[in-house]
Simulated assay, not measured.
Amino acid sequence: MSSIADNIGSVTRRIQKATLKAGREPGSVRLLAVSKTRTADDLRAAVAAGQTAFGENYLQEALDKIDALADIAGIDWHFIGPIQSNKTRQIATAFSWVHSVDRLKIARRLNEQRAAELPPLNICLQINVNEEDSKTGCTLEELPDLVQAIGELTNLSLRGLMAIPDPDQPEAELRLSFRRLTRALHDLKAQYPDAGPLDTLSMGMSGDLEVAIAEGATWVRVGTDVFGPRPAKS
């Protein structure tokens, strides 16, 4: 069985190869290790292999791991799961990034609850790029109004967009989904130059990271290929 360190090395090489093939700058794509359901010891092994950015979906599980790993400096915690209104205070305090902001109400609560002594919270807006009924996220049509409103929230730094396209699409359609997100970010930068850095595309996972990188991803969210298969639920 491959170790977590071996897996990180393998995924990193895939990212580097795809970045080079796409003609992009080395280091322009970063690995976000999706660590939901993984143990604190798993994360320690990943940190020992040089991985410092972790994406968590479940708040209480994440808070337990943040506490367990408090002795390690430099871990970059990203919240990537659906956000309930009653959980925003803890998310605003414990994380440096939130990839899954999908409506203004959540953005406002995160802004109000971000402690003044902390730097602005980096956020990505989650886009339901295929407009699937089963997924959260704003539509591309709703996006400009949301960006304009968030531009007034001084405790947030709007970094870009996130999407989870249907992985069962044919590759050509998946590529088009990623391309829509890239085009949307480009349009926002032109239309709202003061809205935020707008430098981030969080898209691509274990099975499609090469396609995502070819279409502009800056963060790829990889879980299974870093930590191995998740244990079967009892």
Score class of each variant (00 low, 15 high):
residue 175 R to D: 10
residue 226 V to K: 09
residue 110 L to Q: 01
residue 145 D to N: 11
residue 230 R to S: 01
residue 206 S to P: 14
residue 160 G to E: 04
residue 218 T to P: 12
residue 119 P to F: 15
residue 117 E to S: 12
residue 165 P to I: 03
residue 121 L to W: 09
residue 228 G to K: 06
residue 208 D to E: 11
residue 212 A to N: 06
residue 103 R to K: 06
residue 109 R to I: 04
residue 220 V to R: 02
residue 140 L to A: 04
residue 154 T to N: 13
residue 117 E to V: 08
residue 164 I to S: 06
residue 114 R to I: 11
residue 118 L to I: 08
residue 104 L to E: 00
residue 189 K to H: 08
residue 110 L to S: 02
residue 158 L to D: 02
residue 189 K to Q: 09
residue 125 L to P: 00
residue 145 D to V: 10
residue 178 F to A: 01
residue 110 L to P: 03
residue 125 L to Q: 00
residue 198 L to F: 07
residue 196 G to S: 13
residue 211 V to F: 12
residue 127 I to E: 00
residue 144 P to L: 07
residue 208 D to P: 07
residue 227 F to S: 05
residue 151 G to P: 05
residue 155 N to V: 15
residue 171 E to N: 11
residue 144 P to Q: 08
residue 196 G to D: 03
residue 229 P to G: 15
residue 228 G to D: 09
residue 224 T to W: 12
residue 230 R to Q: 02
residue 156 L to G: 01
residue 144 P to C: 13
residue 125 L to T: 00
residue 208 D to K: 00
residue 111 N to H: 11
residue 183 R to A: 10
residue 169 Q to E: 13
residue 190 A to Q: 15
residue 121 L to T: 05
residue 223 G to A: 14
residue 167 P to Q: 07
residue 221 R to E: 06
residue 213 I to P: 06
residue 228 G to Y: 07
residue 190 A to G: 08
residue 136 T to K: 06
residue 209 L to H: 07
residue 212 A to Q: 03
residue 185 L to K: 11
residue 184 A to T: 04
residue 176 L to E: 15
residue 105 K to Q: 09
residue 191 Q to I: 05
residue 199 D to T: 08
residue 132 E to P: 13
residue 138 C to M: 08
residue 164 I to G: 01
residue 154 T to S: 15
residue 160 G to P: 04
residue 211 V to W: 00
residue 155 N to W: 13
residue 121 L to P: 09
residue 107 A to L: 03
residue 145 D to Q: 14
residue 129 V to K: 01
residue 221 R to S: 06
residue 204 G to F: 03
residue 221 R to G: 06
residue 188 L to M: 10
residue 220 V to G: 14
residue 186 H to M: 09
residue 171 E to I: 09
residue 132 E to M: 09
residue 165 P to Q: 02
residue 221 R to C: 10
residue 111 N to F: 03
residue 109 R to Q: 07
residue 207 G to W: 11
residue 206 S to F: 06
residue 158 L to Q: 08
residue 183 R to L: 08
residue 174 L to F: 10
residue 161 L to T: 02
residue 170 P to M: 07
residue 182 T to D: 14
residue 113 Q to T: 07
residue 139 T to E: 01
residue 175 R to S: 10
residue 197 P to T: 09
residue 180 R to H: 14
residue 157 S to N: 14
residue 203 M to H: 00
residue 178 F to C: 02
residue 176 L to K: 10
residue 198 L to C: 05
residue 113 Q to Y: 05
residue 212 A to P: 02
residue 225 D to V: 13
residue 217 A to N: 02
residue 202 S to C: 05
residue 143 L to G: 01
residue 151 G to R: 04
residue 120 P to I: 12
residue 127 I to A: 03
residue 222 V to M: 11
residue 183 R to H: 15
